[in-house]
Simulated assay, not measured.
Amino acid sequence: MTKASPCLPALLALSASLRGARTAEGLGLRRLAHKLGVSAQALSLWETGKRAPAIEDVAHVLGFLRVSPEEYDRVMRLRRHLEDPISIEALGAGSTSHRRALEELAVRTFEWAPHVVPEPLQTTEYIRAIAQDRAAAPDDLDQAIFEHQVRQLDQGWTGHRTVLVGAAALAPAIEPQLQALRAASNFPGLAIRIVPPAVAKTIDAFTIYEGQGSAFTVALRHQDNIIFVSEPDAVQGYRSTFKALERGSVTCADFRPGPSCETP
C-alpha cells in the first residue's frame, strides 16, 4: 500500500516547533545534532519541513530539550497525525501557525473573500463601519484600528496572490474600500478582482496555497478554527470553483457598485 504524503501545514508546524524548541534553549543546529547523535543535515531537513522525522526522533529531540509536558503532547500529536489529509488549527495559535507557515512559503495564493474584505486590504473606514454596526465602544474601536494597522505591517504579500472579493463584502464602506482595492491592484504580484452578485456562489471563504512542486493546500475558516485540506480530489474541487469565480469577475477599475452592493 502506498504511504500517504505528509500534510503540508502539519509538517510545517512540526518543523517550526522543533526549531523553536531548539532556539529556546540557545543551541545551534550543529551542536544539537552532535548531542543527539544525528547528522546536522538530517536535523536541518526536519526543521525546514523538507523531511518528516520519525515519531521516535521527534520524541528524542523533545525529550533532550526538556520541553514542557503540554508542548511535548502538542508536538507529538502533530507527528502522529502528519499523514492525515485534513488538519485543524485554532485561530491565534501563535508562531507555529499552519497558516503563517503556508503564507511564508507559498509560491502562489488564491483567495476567495465573499463576505469580508481580507484584513490586509481593509481601510480604516471599513473597520470603523464594521465596528459601528456591532455597536463597539469608542475605545474598543480605536483599539481595533490600531491592532489592524499593526497586523498590516506584520503581514506582507509573498509570492503571487490573486484575491477575488465578493461585491457584497464592500458594503460597510463601498467607495473608500473600492478606491483602496484599485490602488492595491497596482502592487507587484497582487491581482484583485471583484465578483458581481450575479456570479458569486453560495460558498464560504477559502484560500488555496500552492507550494513548491505544485503542492496545494486549502484553508477553510470554521468558527474559531481553520481547517486545512490537502486531499487531491477536494483540492481540485476548490481550484475549479475558484477558476469559475475568476472567469465571472471584473477588475477593480471596471467594477461599478449597484443597489445589490448596498447594506440592507
Rank of each mutant, 00 (worst) to 15 (best):
L8S: 10
A10V: 12
A16K: 04
A24V: 00
G26P: 02
L29S: 10
L29I: 09
R31D: 14
L32W: 01
L36E: 02
G37Y: 03
V38R: 06
S39E: 07
Q41E: 12
A42I: 12
L43C: 04
T48Y: 03
D57W: 05
V58W: 01
A59H: 10
V61F: 02
L62Y: 04
R66G: 09
R66W: 07
E71K: 11
V75N: 00
M76D: 04
L78V: 11
R80N: 09
E83R: 15
D84H: 15
P85V: 13
P85N: 08
S87C: 15
S87E: 05
I88L: 09
I88T: 11
I88A: 06
S95F: 07
T96Y: 02
T96R: 07
H98Q: 06
R99Y: 07
R100G: 05
E103N: 12
E104R: 13
A106I: 00
A106T: 04
F110D: 03
E111H: 08
W112L: 14
A113C: 13
A113M: 11
P114T: 14
P118K: 04
T124R: 12
T124S: 06
E125Q: 11
A129T: 08
I130R: 03
A137D: 14
D139T: 09
Q143W: 06
Q143F: 08
I145T: 01
I145P: 03
H148T: 04
H148S: 07
V150K: 09
R151Q: 12
D154M: 14
D154F: 11
V165F: 03
G166N: 07
G166V: 02
A167D: 01
A167Y: 01
A168R: 05
A180K: 00
A180W: 01
I192M: 06
I194K: 08
I194C: 01
V195K: 00
P196M: 11
P197I: 05
E210P: 05
G213A: 07
G213C: 05
F216N: 01
Q223T: 13
D224P: 03
F228I: 02
V229P: 03
S230P: 05
P232C: 09
Q236D: 13
Y238I: 09
R239L: 13
S240I: 12
F242I: 04
R247W: 07
G248F: 12
V250Q: 02
A253H: 12
P257W: 05
C261W: 02
P264Q: 11
